[in-house]
Computed example of a mutant assay.
Amino acid sequence: MRLGLLYSGGKDSTLAALLCAEFYDVTLVTGSFGITDDWQHARDAAESVGFEHERLDLEREVAEEAVDRLVADGFPRNAIQHVHEHALEQLAASGFDAIADGTRRDDRVPTVSRAQAQSLEDRHDVDYIAPLSGFGRGAVDRLVEAELDVTIGPSEEIRRADYEAELRALLAEQRGTDAIEEVFPAHDQTYVTGVR
């Protein structure tokens, strides 16, 4: 069975791919609004861990709505959730037997409720898999340390292809670079460079 996994090139989605590969033919899929070429970082990470990769075109209108939410809220949670739900919808409609993401048990955002998962499955005749949903951050970090080569650093310095990268670019385009610091808290990102 073919599984498409939403992929950023980071540790969570890479670990999710490794877990799913035991049972599925996994393709790593990176959503892109076409705002930047950052999706290529995920393609490179996918290659470094031996998975096929595809780009998934997302609707720019959704990115613009997300930036409006960023500005209105003053924080990224609702905007990131909005984009993730759109990406899952697009992925579910793209012809895979199953879809997955790298959401963990203790993630604040994005999350997928049981009702959302069942709705995706029912409407698109696809299985939704959340392979890390039983893993907390500490368990994920220990598995990643044992299995993956990872670069970790401040969000603005790490190559990555998550939703945040394109939203940052669009926010800066519309509101200036100072708006990024006003909305996004300082945090670290990861980028996978290989399997150990």
Rank of each mutant, 00 (worst) to 15 (best):
T27G: 04
L91T: 00
S119V: 07
A16F: 02
I180A: 13
P154A: 15
V71D: 09
C20W: 10
T103W: 08
A16V: 01
D149K: 11
Y7E: 03
Q81E: 11
D125S: 13
D12K: 04
I129Y: 09
T111L: 12
S32D: 10
G9Q: 09
H86Y: 09
G176F: 11
E157A: 15
A169Q: 09
H82L: 15
E61P: 09
L70M: 08
R142Q: 14
T151V: 12
I80Y: 07
L143C: 07
R142T: 12
A98W: 00
R114W: 10
L91Y: 00
L3G: 02
R105E: 14
R142G: 11
R114T: 12
P110E: 02
L5K: 01
I80S: 07
G10W: 08
S48Y: 05
P110S: 00
F33V: 03
T103M: 09
D162T: 09
D106N: 14
E22M: 10
L5E: 06
A117Y: 08
L91Q: 03
D38N: 15
A186R: 10
R104D: 01
I35S: 02
S133K: 14
E59Q: 13
L170K: 01
D178S: 10
L18S: 04
G138Y: 12
E61G: 13
Q118H: 13
D12V: 05
V29D: 10
